[in-house]
Design a protein around this nucleic acid. Structure first.
Lengths: 239, 239
DNA sequence: CGAACACTTGAACCTAATCAATGAGTGTGG
DNA sequence: CCACACTCATTGATTAGGTTCAAGTGTTCG
């Protein structure tokens, strides 16, 4: 495994958490991690588990979902390689506030929370990177809050798709493909609506040529048009 | 002003940002701050302003509000003495994502963002405190997100009131008073609904003896009953 | 005392949830 | 390789929860 070993060391350098760290520091930090592999649909951790590990995804894709007391679910975040997860609990709380399920066979590096906290004291860079990341998270969450509180369903769905494009968009022939297998239910959970409304909305958009949809697949053909919906740019009626 | 000078130095020790700092460090950090006073209804900063200052409230109360492109508003956070604000922008972004308006005559200490970032490098404790604070913020925001996405209005309002109780509750004769002048409109903005629905809901609750309401005033008489609504504990019908 | 502001209440309307039934795509095992 | 089961998705009908609009009632303050 020495091959993937050095490859991951290189990948770590690009992880948000370890930006601008010296090679020497990285070489010290890397051995403190353990590798954890998980198959498609299996869980890294469940909501409510004691939060003792801090994760950085190396390969695969992970869904972070939160469950309400009354059985409702929300899809909170999609994790791509290089991103950290399980951090909120590790840095503050005792238990994970969400579940992490692999959308593909996935591999992550893990550190004990104690280890991470120590690292932050000895390497201010790591702490600052974390702060930067958290500040961004807070801002994005506030944005979503505002949307959920004030916007109509259609605009919320548009915002969700645009966010997905930014996070996991992959250029394709006729547009930008969302490179993540998402059911209508998943999109509904991210937009705070039902799968029925998502289905209707996406079909309406397909009629207008904005998107092209399939089973667990969304291709954005006209991003500009979606932005217009998201930002409520009332198109001037061509009288 | 030497009197209030030392008083504030003492107050700083209790600010979340400076927990567990030595008196010596605090004595070094304090002189780097400038004092900023603002009258009731005036603004510390407006949404979109260049974010060069980092605030810690010393006296008074501050409302943080965010404006949508279509003129809608949301009341995001109520700041009490000892809390920091304006930090997200200072730590990540270039512009404040919200406006900070004084609900009472207020005084805050301010640091330049550069100064704060430097402090974090030299004093890991400050960075860790910030991380802790941000992690909590993220978690609370996720909670609110979940509520907005999945819960009915009545439960959302209940959650908002309970959160207010936790943040600014003051024991009174017949219950717990929310120690912040909030109009129905304000509560509506925090719950993602309209002032009409808030008015109706609060009146219904008053009928049931759960709360006692007045002009910009809410007194919670039966917190337990509110929790039951918030958590949807379907009371067993006394057949 | 009058004006501005916060709040209440009723009625009409509408968005989106809910319920129900059907259709399409995927995978598995005989 | 086809049939069956399963999951995902579409679509129509109905309904309810909440918004919106409109009118009117307190309260506070200059």
């Amino acid at each position: 495994m020495s091959e993937s070993n050095s490859a991951w060391l290189e990948a770590l350098r690009h992880a948000e958490l370890f930006h601008n760290l010296s090679a020497a520091d990285l070489a010290k930090i890397y051995p403190l991690a353990r590798t954890r592999q998980v198959e498609r649909d299996a869980f890294f951790f469940h909501q409510g588990d004691a939060a003792d590990l801090f994760y950085v995804l190396m390969a695969g894709q992970v869904k972070l979902t939160q469950l309400t007391s009354d059985g409702n679910q929300q899809l909170m975040r999609l994790i791509q390689p290089g991103e950290m997860f399980g951090g909120i609990a590790a840095l503050g709380n005792a238990a994970y506030p969400a579940s992490a399920q692999a959308a593909q066979d996935s591999t992550a590096l893990t550190w004990h929370t104690d280890t991470i906290l120590q690292l932050m004291e000895t390497h201010p860079r790591v702490a600052l990177n974390t702060i930067h990341h958290l500040a961004q998270r807070v801002q994005e969450l506030q944005q979503r809050n505002l949307e959920l509180a004030t916007e109509r369903v259609e605009r919320r769905i548009a915002h969700v798709l645009l966010r997905l494009v930014r996070a996991s968009g992959r250029k394709a022939e006729t547009g930008i493909l969302i490179d993540f297998p998402l059911s209508r239910q998943d999109i509904a959970e991210m937009s705070g609506t039902t799968l029925y409304t998502v289905s209707r909305t996406l079909n309406a958009w397909q009629q207008k040529g904005l998107v092209e949809i399939g089973r667990e697949r969304v291709l954005i053909c006209n991003p500009h048009g979606l932005v217009a919906i998201a930002e409520d740019l009332t198109l001037p009626p061509h009288a």
